[in-house]
């Protein structure tokens, strides 16, 4: 039976073909070794991630086209639809092209209470994006709303590609976007200079102990 014509869900953007490049291939070999034969389908998540990263390297846009999902299905010996299901289930896989920088704003309760609305508004104002899921006209930014990123201590969070920018407000967001536009992303982390998730303005507990002098409390005494 001949294959009925298949349609791409995103005509136009869809590349003609997708082949894993040598850089991805090297990683795939390592990943596949983790799973026994006949259980290779378990590698679908890491392979989707690899495909997305390769697309970023090759085209500047981190997304997984359908041809890439088909390539993964063939590689892992699973029906293509099973890969489509996984890829569309996880928010982290973009099944349509995104901008060069993928802005993922957390708007879940803690971030929202700490001012994520201002972050969203600033992103919209600076990039010209009108709503979540849109890519800016210059193709540089795509903004998405995400659920809790698990860094509530430093809320609100703006994730750019893989990096967390924390303790955001309107001003720092604007500065960050300007830096991204200049292709000079600042180091990730807190934007108000706190160390990891330590209290703002420095530690407020255990301040009397001098760790360097070796007087840290010993357990059990």
């Amino acid at each position: 039976m001949t294959d009925p014509a298949t349609k791409s869900p995103h005509p136009g953007a869809e590349p003609e073909s997708f082949v894993f490049d040598p850089e991805s291939d090297a990683v795939i070999d390592k990943i596949l070794k983790k799973y026994p034969p006949h259980r290779q389908a378990s590698a679908v998540l890491p392979l989707l991630d690899l495909a997305q990263r390769q697309m970023k390297r090759q085209t500047g846009s981190a997304w997984v086209p359908r041809v890439a999902m088909d390539a993964i299905a063939a590689r892992l010996g699973m029906p293509p639809i099973r890969v489509y299901e996984v890829a569309t289930f996880y928010f982290m896989f973009n099944t349509r092209p995104v901008g060069k920088w993928h802005l993922q704003v957390c708007t879940t309760t803690p971030c929202w209470l700490r001012g994520s609305d201002a972050v969203v508004e600033t992103c919209k104002r600076v990039t010209g994006i009108r709503h979540f899921g849109e890519t800016s006209a210059d193709g540089l930014f795509t903004m998405n709303e995400v659920e809790c990123l698990g860094a509530c201590v430093n809320a609100p969070i703006l994730q750019v590609d893989d990096d967390f920018y924390e303790d955001m407000d309107a001003a720092t967001t604007e500065k960050l976007l300007d830096a991204l536009r200049r292709d000079a992303p600042p180091p990730p982390g807190s934007m108000i200079g706190r160390q990891a998730s330590a209290p703002e303005g420095g530690p407020i507990t255990l301040t009397t102990l001098d760790f360097a002098a070796g007087s840290a409390p010993q357990g059990g005494e």
Binding site: D3, P4, K7, P9, I81, E85, T88
Partner: peptide
């Protein structure tokens, strides 16, 4: 195996994804 459930939650849809 051509039918599947794509996306999730309220956006979950049954289909072939590739419309064939």
């Amino acid at each position: 195996p051509e039918l599947g459930a794509t996306a999730r939650g309220e956006n979950m849809e049954i289909g072939t994804y590739v419309e064939r």
